[in-house]
Simulated scan of single mutants.
Amino acid sequence: MQKLNLSGRFYLVVEDEYLAASIIVTALEDEGAAVAGPVSSVTGALKLVSERADELDAGILDIDLRGVMVYPVAEKLAEQRIPFVFVTGYECDCLPEPFRTMPCLNKPCDEQELLGLLANLPSRQRPANRSAT
């Protein structure tokens, strides 16, 4: 198994299924990444994005959070130029128009496939005039 370099990266995990969230978080942490979340609601995810947007490198989003669609979070991440990946029980070809080109994996997904996808996401373009706090 190839070791990926996710050290120092910070990922938002939005997932309402405990086991799926646990697997994703463990896989990320095993690769040296830090995690915001997991959060299981759109409200919680939007709060984290607004509080920590400057730190986030990418997001992992389940589409259906107990009957509420995650698309407002996806829109907020896109506005902030934070890349994200959908991980869903839905068919990926059913994504709404604005998100059809986004990376998407079907559940249950292979964690190595997810990590490889995250490792190959384009780097986030951070504003040059902001400093980390």
Rank of each mutant, 00 (worst) to 15 (best):
L48S: 13
R9G: 05
E91Y: 08
D30F: 06
R52G: 07
A34N: 08
T88H: 11
N120M: 01
V14F: 12
Q125P: 00
E97D: 09
D64F: 02
I23K: 02
V85G: 03
D110N: 13
A58I: 08
S123Q: 14
L28F: 10
F86G: 02
E111C: 02
Q125W: 00
L115R: 09
L19I: 14
S40C: 03
E97F: 06
L4T: 01
A58L: 07
E111V: 12
P98S: 10
Y18Q: 12
V25L: 10
E79H: 13
Q80Y: 06
I82H: 03
S41D: 11
D54I: 02
S41G: 08
L77N: 02
N106E: 14
E55A: 08
Y90G: 01
V73L: 06
P108C: 01
V70E: 01
L115T: 11
T88W: 11
E75L: 03
E113C: 07
E79C: 02
V42P: 05
T101K: 15
A36K: 06
D30W: 04
S131Q: 14
L114P: 02
V35I: 11
L56H: 11
C104Y: 08
R100K: 15
E15D: 10
P83F: 09
L77K: 06
I63Q: 04
L6R: 06
D16I: 13
E91C: 09
Q112A: 12
V42R: 01
F84I: 07
Y18A: 13
K107I: 05
D16S: 15
E113P: 00
F99P: 00
D93L: 07
L65W: 09
E15I: 08
M69P: 01
Y71F: 15
I23M: 12
G8C: 08
C92K: 10
K107E: 06
E31F: 01
Y71T: 02
G89C: 13
L48E: 14
G59N: 04
S123W: 07
D62T: 15
A36G: 04
D57H: 14
G67W: 08
Y11R: 07
A45I: 05
S7Y: 10
G116K: 10
E55L: 08
C92T: 09
L12P: 11
M102G: 00
T88P: 05
E31M: 04
G44Y: 01
N106W: 00
E97V: 11
P103C: 03
S41E: 09
A58P: 01
Y18G: 04
L105C: 13
